[in-house]
């Protein structure tokens, strides 16, 4: 055992005057949260990595709770880099997002980079009320430039009104189950990303499935949600296709 334990918390509520208050903004150790200038009724928070990591054995968690009528946007100042540590154990990074009915969360962190020798489990769970809205971006880059990746296991679960609309786990890097870099899974691509958009109106008017670029697709999920799934040679080109998807969805 050992390693760093850190839990950062964000709580957003409607302030009653058409804006969003942040009654909870708890940084912890390497996970520092900074409130930035609000835009309209949307509160904004940036996650600042005060140290590098997570390293082997670390357990990081970020929890965000968005109340009814509140609007929150969370980004990060820089990419998160999973690195090997002194401790042989895997590192864990858990993200827990709760959005109440009529709340809205834009969770748009910078990429996670899996450096050589690292071993990280990322779990992102978003629980949404039936009328909640979400835009969630997840980008993983396998290795820094020209570097072999570490081992990365990433699970993303999205629930809307108690029903699971998306449950996906990607495992890659040395020690992952075979075939992860083969023609069915990543085929040599070094960046992989997802964009989840949940809106109540998708229940009656789902998005049409659409191919975006060479290796990306926008699809309606079984529920009031849409997913963009993409692979790309590198993080820059991945961001380009996910940005294009945001434009298609009128989100930028």
């Amino acid at each position: 055992m050992g390693g760093v334990r850190a839990v950062a918390r964000i709580g957003a509520t409607a302030d009653g005057r058409g804006g969003t208050a942040l009654p909870v903004l708890e940084s912890d150790g390497p996970l520092a949260l900074r409130r930035t200038r609000a835009v309209g009724d949307e509160a904004r928070v940036v996650l600042v990595g005060a140290m590098s990591g997570p390293l082997g054995g670390d357990r990081f968690a970020v929890e965000a709770e968005v109340g009814s009528g509140a609007r929150l946007r969370v980004g990060s100042a820089a990419a998160t880099i999973a690195l090997p540590g002194q401790i042989k154990d895997a590192a864990h990074y858990d993200v827990r997002l709760d959005v109440a009915d009529e709340g809205e969360l834009h969770w748009l962190p910078e990429p996670l980079i899996s450096a050589r020798g690292s071993d990280l489990y990322v779990t992102t769970r978003a629980d949404l009320g039936p009328g909640a809205r979400l835009v969630l971006r997840e980008e993983q880059v396998l290795g820094r430039v020209g570097e072999e990746p570490g081992r990365l296991t990433s699970r993303l679960v999205v629930r809307v009104g108690g029903r699971t609309v998306l449950d996906q786990e990607l495992a890659c890097g040395p020690g992952a189950p075979g075939g992860w870099d083969g023609p069915a899974v990543l085929a040599g691509h070094r960046a992989v990303g997802q964009l989840v958009v949940v809106r109540p109106e998708f229940a009656t008017h789902p998005v049409g499935a659409q191919i975006l670029g060479e290796h990306a697709a926008l699809v309606p999920l079984a529920g009031p949600a849409a997913l963009v799934s993409a692979v790309a040679p590198d993080g820059l080109r991945l961001r380009r296709v996910l940005d294009e998807a945001l434009t298609v969805l009128h989100l930028r």
Binding site: D167, E169, L170, A184, L186, A217, V219, V231
Partner: peptide, 22 residues
């Protein structure tokens, strides 16, 4: 419960299936 079911995914199978269907 259902969460114990594995959720292993293959991005290119999912993306390729959409391309193929078109």
């Amino acid at each position: 419960g259902l969460d114990t079911l594995p959720a292993a995914s293959a991005p290119l199978l999912e993306i390729g299936a959409e391309a193929h269907a078109a």
